[in-house]
Simulated assay, not measured.
Amino acid sequence: MKKILVTGAKGQLGSELSELSSDYSQYEWIFADRTQVTLDNLDLLKTQLNEIRPNIILNCGAYTAVDKAESEKKLAFTVNHLAVELIAKYAKDNNVKLIHISTDYVFDGTSSVALDEEAQTNPINSYGASKLAGETACLKENPDSIVIRTSWVYSKFGNNFVKTMQRLMNEKDTVNVVNDQVGSPTYAADLAKAMILILEAEKWLPGIYNYSNEGEISWYEFALSIQELGDYNCDVGGIPSSSYPTPAKRPEFSLLDKKKIKKVYNLDIPNYKESLKKMF
């Protein structure tokens, strides 16, 4: 029986994979939190991988505190770059299949057309820079890896935009949301299914793939959809990013082009609203 190691098991994606795993009992699943697979301690990480001896690694663990990464660069790069490099090397040396999760934040946001896998990367914050270093190291150390870039991830698990909006719309009369950052949300349950479909597919074609739900919206429009589905009596206002300064800059446009993953793995990707309804 093949052993699948999922890192970041307590995160949104790890939790969704855990929920799906009972449907795939042909695998032995190991859901490792940060104590079982310690991404910020490389010596310990090496030992842990050698003890677990997985056949497949789904690397969902990451340092994801975008604003905090500006003041915790070293930690962000250890987890998002050096640990990924080590995992990729382990995978290469032990003939392990690796799917590594990356982000739309590897882009600078100046595009006006959906970004495909060949688009020029140019991160504008430390988090994005650490994730780009990680995906580059991953494919350099183990060219047989699959890297999936995703965006605006939400789930019924963990902390995310949808849950924050639900809370604020319950508590407040007015909520303001930035209306000049455009992309598409990703329901973590959809991405988890896509990862398993890739594992189950007859072909394994390494490289970078994009995955998010279909649709092109701003965070403000996303908030309006949440308001509508939750039937909240709250005014939602759109504001420019300049009215809501954050330590880390965000890309203004990071819509991902999904043609490649749909073609290669014959994936049917739901529209963001369909998936948001499922979460509700």
Rank of each mutant, 00 (worst) to 15 (best):
Y63F: 14
L44Q: 14
Y127C: 13
M169A: 07
N159L: 11
P247H: 06
T110E: 08
I261C: 03
P247R: 09
T246D: 01
P270S: 11
K203Q: 14
K140A: 15
Y209K: 11
Q36G: 06
N266D: 13
L205R: 08
E118L: 14
A88K: 09
T164K: 08
Y232C: 02
D40C: 07
D40V: 02
L98S: 05
L5H: 07
I124T: 04
K277W: 13
C138V: 09
K97R: 15
V162M: 07
T110M: 02
A65E: 13
I57R: 06
Y90T: 04
D144M: 15
S21N: 03
K140T: 15
C60L: 07
V96T: 15
F107W: 12
E135Y: 11
T38D: 09
L115R: 06
S130E: 11
P240Y: 02
G11C: 11
I146P: 00
G11T: 10
G8E: 05
I217M: 03
Y220C: 00
D108Q: 07
N55K: 08
G61F: 10
I87Y: 13
F253G: 12
D23Q: 11
S25V: 02
L168N: 01
K92I: 02
Y27Q: 07
Y232W: 11
H100E: 14
Y211I: 06
L168V: 02
N233M: 09
N160R: 07
G128E: 08
S155V: 06
A189G: 05
S145T: 08
T136K: 15
T164C: 03
G230W: 11
P206Q: 05
N41M: 05
T38I: 05
E72R: 03
G134N: 10
D173R: 04
N122R: 10
Y244C: 14
N122H: 09
P245K: 01
G238N: 01
G215L: 05
L45Y: 13
D268F: 06
Y272N: 05
V106S: 09
L139A: 07
K10A: 11
S254A: 15
D67R: 07
L98V: 10
T78L: 14
K260C: 04
